[in-house]
Amino acid sequence: MKNSISIMLVLLFISCNNQKPANLNFVKEKENINNVLNTWHKNAAESNYEGYFNAMDENSIFIGTDASEHWNKKEFEKFSKPFFDRGKAWDFTPLKRNIYFEKDGRIAWFDELLNTWMGVCRGSGVIEKEGETWKIKHYVLSLTIPNSNIDEVIKINKTKDSTFVKKLHSNLIRN
């Protein structure tokens, strides 16, 4: 009898852990994520500092287009505050977005093409559902470079990249 109860408890535990959320509507969750990201970009365009940063998780990371731009939320807030205070942050308009879900539907990742003052950029990130709210955990902004122009970009970046690599390399050696 004891063995039967133990086996039943183990089977119950396993079945609960492998279950997908029965009531999760992935179409609706995609709409919710699109709304969060569209509003996030709109808040930057309208210099809504509070709205912009409330969309980000407290432990989020933002990676910008410059190799030195790797910020946690507090660092990114500090960097961004002067732009928002002047009433002119940035205006990124989504052109296309793909969203993918982890099995349990609580974590999603996305990539998007954006129309920006820099031309077409790519954003990608991770977003997690906390309670009923989606929060941006990680975001990477990058420039798109046509393959036919890559040689020109390499030449432009060569000196700066060389200096940056030396700095990073010397930090690695000391640590």
Rank of each mutant, 00 (worst) to 15 (best):
residue 169 H to T: 14
residue 52 Y to W: 08
residue 102 E to D: 08
residue 70 H to N: 13
residue 121 C to L: 05
residue 56 M to W: 05
residue 134 W to F: 06
residue 62 F to N: 11
residue 57 D to W: 05
residue 18 N to W: 11
residue 38 N to P: 00
residue 158 K to S: 15
residue 120 V to Q: 15
residue 150 I to G: 01
residue 167 K to Q: 09
residue 156 I to W: 00
residue 170 S to F: 05
residue 111 D to I: 04
residue 91 D to M: 06
residue 60 S to V: 01
residue 15 S to I: 13
residue 23 N to P: 00
residue 107 I to F: 06
residue 124 S to I: 00
residue 44 A to G: 03
residue 77 E to C: 05
residue 70 H to V: 14
residue 157 N to Y: 08
residue 175 N to S: 12
residue 95 L to V: 13
residue 149 N to I: 04
residue 157 N to Q: 12
residue 167 K to N: 11
residue 85 D to Q: 06
residue 120 V to R: 12
residue 168 L to W: 09
residue 26 F to M: 11
residue 14 I to S: 05
residue 170 S to M: 04
residue 155 K to W: 02
residue 15 S to V: 11
residue 148 S to N: 12
residue 175 N to Y: 07
residue 121 C to T: 09
residue 64 G to T: 07
residue 100 Y to S: 14
residue 8 M to W: 06
residue 134 W to T: 02
residue 154 I to T: 10
residue 72 N to W: 03
residue 99 I to T: 07
residue 167 K to E: 12
residue 76 F to V: 00
residue 12 L to S: 15
residue 153 V to E: 07
residue 96 K to S: 10
residue 98 N to F: 04
residue 62 F to I: 12
residue 7 I to Y: 05
residue 82 P to A: 03
residue 100 Y to P: 00
residue 65 T to A: 06
residue 70 H to I: 15
residue 81 K to Y: 06
residue 73 K to N: 02
residue 171 N to S: 12
residue 61 I to D: 11
residue 143 L to V: 14
residue 170 S to Q: 14
residue 48 N to K: 10
residue 60 S to T: 00
residue 31 E to R: 09
residue 19 Q to A: 15
residue 121 C to A: 15
residue 53 F to Q: 05
residue 23 N to E: 15
residue 127 I to Q: 10
residue 128 E to S: 13
residue 144 T to F: 01
residue 126 V to R: 12
residue 23 N to T: 14
residue 145 I to M: 02
residue 65 T to M: 04
residue 152 E to G: 08
residue 131 G to M: 05
residue 174 R to V: 11
